[in-house]
Amino acid sequence: MNESSAVALLLLTGGAIVGTYLWRGAGVMFAARIKSDSPVFQWVTFVSYAMLGGLIARMVILPIGPLMETPLLCRALAFVIGVGVFFGGGRRVLPAVFVGVATFILLVSFF
């Protein structure tokens, strides 16, 4: 990696850390005075979750990077099975992730 891209990554990561910390710090500062159910805040929460929903879908359906080399069917099927185990199996995180990832590894090995 050359020097300029190292500096760029440093700025990027530092900025992301600061951007995240602002929410935490504001929470401490205003803990007693802020209404976290105010309309503006409610909207920000919806924006945040919609964004995350979009990011998950994109990572599964249109991945960037190494997952691009795997077939869409493998990713979609393993994802659906993992989420299915989660909702069908009493909402336990670890079994769901384990089954989903194991399915994915098997599918990728054979196709």
Binding site: G15, W23, A26, G27, S36, V44, S48
Partner: peptide, 21 residues
């Protein structure tokens, strides 16, 4: 990117507000 990361973490504000007191 920074804006996106910050928005993805907006949930920390209500979490902290509920937790600290």
């Amino acid at each position: 990117v920074i804006l996106g990361v910050a928005l993805a973490n907006a949930r920390f504000l209500p979490m902290v507000v509920a937790f600290m007191p």
